[in-house]
Computed example of a mutant assay.
Amino acid sequence: MPRERLGSRLGFILLSAGCAIGVGNVWKFPWMVGQYGGGAFVVCYVLFLLILGLPIMTMEFAIGRASQKSPVRAYQALEKPGSKWHIHGYLAMIGNYLLMMFYTTVCGWMLYYFYLTVSGRFVGATGEQVQAAFPEMLGKPVVMTVCMVAVVVIGFMINSFGLQGGLERVTKVMMIILLAIMVVLAINSIMTEGSGEGLRFYLIPDLGRMQECGIANVIVAAMNQAFFTLSLGIGAMAIFGSYIGKGRALLGEAVNVAILDTFVAFTAGLIIFPACFA
Rank of each mutant, 00 (worst) to 15 (best):
L6G: 04
L6A: 07
G7Y: 03
G11N: 09
G11T: 05
F12A: 11
I13N: 00
I13W: 01
C19K: 07
G24L: 00
V26L: 07
K28C: 08
F29P: 08
P30Y: 12
W31A: 14
M32L: 15
V33I: 03
V43T: 02
L47H: 01
F48H: 03
F48Q: 08
F48K: 03
F48A: 12
L52I: 07
G53V: 01
P55A: 00
T58E: 07
G64S: 06
S67C: 10
S67T: 04
K69E: 10
S70W: 00
S70L: 12
S70I: 12
A74V: 01
A77C: 09
L78Q: 03
K80Q: 13
K80A: 11
H86T: 04
H88N: 13
Y90L: 08
I94K: 04
I94A: 05
G95L: 03
G95S: 03
Y97S: 13
Y97E: 08
L99T: 10
M100N: 07
V106M: 11
W109L: 02
L111M: 04
Y115P: 00
L116K: 12
T117S: 12
S119P: 02
S119I: 05
R121S: 10
F122V: 04
A125G: 04
E128N: 13
E128F: 08
Q129Y: 01
V130D: 00
Q131S: 12
A132Y: 00
A133K: 02
P135S: 05
G139P: 08
P141S: 01
M144S: 14
V146P: 09
V146D: 10
V149S: 12
V149A: 14
A150L: 05
V152A: 11
F156Y: 09
I158C: 11
L163A: 08
Q164R: 14
V170H: 06
V170E: 12
K172T: 00
V173M: 11
M174R: 02
M174G: 00
M174Y: 13
M175S: 10
I177V: 15
L178R: 08
L179Y: 12
L179M: 13
L179T: 06
A180I: 10
I181K: 10
M182H: 09
L185N: 15
A186P: 09
N188T: 04
S189M: 07
I190Q: 07
E193V: 03
S195C: 05
S195H: 06
G196I: 01
L199Q: 06
F201M: 02
Y202E: 05
I204D: 02
I204H: 01
I204W: 05
D206S: 08
D206M: 07
L207A: 12
R209V: 03
R209G: 11
M210F: 02
Q211F: 14
A216L: 15
I219C: 13
A221L: 10
N224Y: 05
F227V: 04
F228T: 09
S231Q: 09
L232R: 06
I234P: 08
A236W: 04
M237V: 09
M237I: 07
F240R: 11
F240Y: 14
G241W: 09
S242V: 06
L251D: 14
G252Q: 04
G252I: 02
I259R: 12
T267N: 01
I271V: 15
I271K: 01
A278Y: 02
A278D: 04
